[in-house]
Design a protein around this nucleic acid. Structure first.
Lengths: 367, 367
DNA sequence: CTGAAAGCGCTAACAT
DNA sequence: ATGTTAGCGCTTTCAG
């Protein structure tokens, strides 16, 4: 396999046409509308192209002319590489990739450093539309996307703008179900470990203002759902310790659980707003000799494979379907002008990390 | 958050210039060379842009003019979605994404259905270069990439062409080390489970011709390395059963191991050319009541996190570094004309799934 | 079935 | 510091 001389100064459609003594249209047609010229002529064109090393019409020039890029852009909160570490994001990406594949569309991962605020990358992306995955509502990159006159679908966040489609789950309802599960088991002294609530790094207790004022709707909604559930049984949410972690990782979960349990060793259930955090929390519980679920119930949210494997009590959501749906919304939108909102179902998974409270708490009055 | 009127017929640089009564250059400069015009004028331009909803220079038109797309294309063997399932590919992608992020470059996943041979997507990609990850040497998509006059780096395959950079590991040496480890433990009756050797689906025994004629260099090299190792101790490779599986998954590993062990229940060691296959093989071993490593040694190749977790004997390779290196090669190439070849190190990991053979085999004469 | 003309929206010399 | 002039490489009416 020796291949062609690489990186040769490329021929153009025009130079090919000149060489052959035909018009540019004819060459163009040879590639794009084979039915518009005779088979022999077409073969002559293609043969000459091969000979001159013409790789076919330049995609950028074609895009400019046709106003189609043949790709969709994906904007993620975190550093790009995060997409390949977070199991939820990975599932979403897989679904989105599936949809793109099916449509023969490229998927452009837009480079975004969370700190380094180079919104430029968004303006530079040659795409036909954007998918925005779980970013803060006031994220400048997201704002930049909205500036571009392109169809956009957001996932796990409010669409914010007319004409922007949305796909997500009912986080509040999902968490309400989980909260009821725990309150039904008799838990009244509960602690909460959640993901970042603001763009600025902050690790530690999150007061009520911070909870309700979060620009991350997913976290806001999940916390609200949990609050709903415990309101129902008369627990004052002001007494519920909520601990926030900026990073989303097992380590962060372990560290957050440690801080939470150090401050409030009396809690009987620890609810984490993601499985990754919950898995870290389980580790910390083990670390300090707490048996789960005997001494402490632990629950997560997401239903990632690892959680399933270890039997975590959680709320399962269909990541892959969310990605696929986002792709469908973007790629199969005719020329509608309406915004679509797709809400996918969640499912409570009662695992082995939660169980009914024994009569240990003076607040407990069930059964 | 109400946002701007979305999907309005967009203004252009020219229309903005006309509106302001300045030249197009001035508007262009306002965006690209702020130092080329007075601050007040620049502000006037930007303000008008805001007012007219001009989102800044069209990226496609700019790309055409500057001959820079600001993105690199990634070509994968499998369906795009595979990238998010295979732990090796995920690691590679993470590294590549890291490099792109650092350079502020987009990463375009080129849609490729393995069956559906629409090479078009390759010709349509508006990118400044390509990374090709572990595809068959005769893959038509790869051939299409070579057609394009763009810098290209391949990973885990021979570069094949002058001017194409390569990053990879020494698969043969890595497998040689693993083979020696096993032969050193006294194993002589060994079975091999490998990944696909050809573009056409084929599951079952692979004879010598198929092994050496494979268009997947990684598999070819790994098999050769193993053969080297057993040649050294006088094992006739013709007697070594090699079983091939088209799919790369745990399920395939389990199924392959089943077939292999059904046919040759006498083997004392099972070498898989990937960890994923090995993990499936372990499952099958358990299934049929074989103890590992007492009754059967099992080894893999790759060093994926899951393998590490369960203590698999394997050869670790630095996936993330491969991705990062591929990105670096593409993005930080000056205007060199030479091809670079980067070979990253592998490391034998002696896990708990391999152990010295007890005196059970009549061929064994060690100690 | 083929060709001529007209841009898509922008940037980069080169003036002024 | 700002404007003028030429395209980047392609597709697409519209005539022949």
């Amino acid at each position: 396999m020796t291949g062609s001389p690489h990186l040769r100064r490329p021929a153009t459609l025009a130079s090919l046409a000149a060489e052959l003594g035909v018009s540019r249209t004819t060459v163009s047609n040879a590639y794009n509308r084979p039915d518009q010229l005779s088979a022999p002529l077409r073969e002559r064109v293609l043969e000459a192209a091969r000979r001159l090393g013409y790789p076919g019409p330049d995609p950028v020039a074609r895009s400019l002319r046709t106003r189609k890029a043949g790709a969709v852009g994906l904007l993620l909160t975190e550093a790009l590489s995060f997409a390949f570490r977070d199991p939820g994001a990975t599932g979403f990406l897989e679904g989105l990739a599936l949809a793109c594949e099916k449509a023969g569309t490229g998927l452009l991962l837009v480079p975004v450093s969370p700190e380094h605020s180079d919104v430029d990358a968004v303006y530079q992306a040659g795409v036909d539309g954007f998918v925005v995955y779980s970013v803060s509502e006031d994220d400048p990159h997201f704002q930049a996307v909205l500036q571009r006159p392109l169809p956009t679908v957001v996932c796990d966040q409010p669409s914010g703008v007319q004409g922007v489609d949305r796909v997500g789950v009912d986080d509040r309802a999902g968490m309400l179900a989980l909260g009821r599960h725990l309150s039904g088991l008799g838990h009244r002294r509960v602690g909460v470990l959640c993901m970042r609530l603001g763009a600025r790094r902050q690790d530690g207790p999150a007061d009520l203002d911070r909870q309700t004022g979060s620009t991350y709707s997913v976290q806001r909604e999940r916390l609200a759902g949990l609050r709903d559930a415990f309101d129902e049984v008369g627990v004052d949410w002001a007494d519920v310790p909520v601990h926030e972690r900026f990073e989303h990782s097992e380590e962060a979960g372990a560290a957050g659980a440690k801080a939470l349990l150090d401050a409030r060793p009396d809690i009987t259930a620890l609810v984490c707003t993601s499985d990754l955090l919950a898995i870290g929390a389980l580790r910390e519980a083990r670390e300090r000799g707490l048996r789960v679920p005997e001494d402490l119930s632990v629950a997560g949210f997401d239903g990632i494979p690892e959680a399933e494997r270890i039997g975590l009590t959680t709320v399962r959501q269909p990541f892959r379907d969310k990605g696929r749906e986002a792709g469908r919304l973007l790629l199969e939108r005719g020329d509608r002008n309406t915004s679509e909102q797709v809400t996918l179902p969640t499912e409570l998974v009662e695992g082995t990390t939660s169980r009914a409270l024994r009569q240990s708490g003076e607040f407990f009055s069930g059964w």
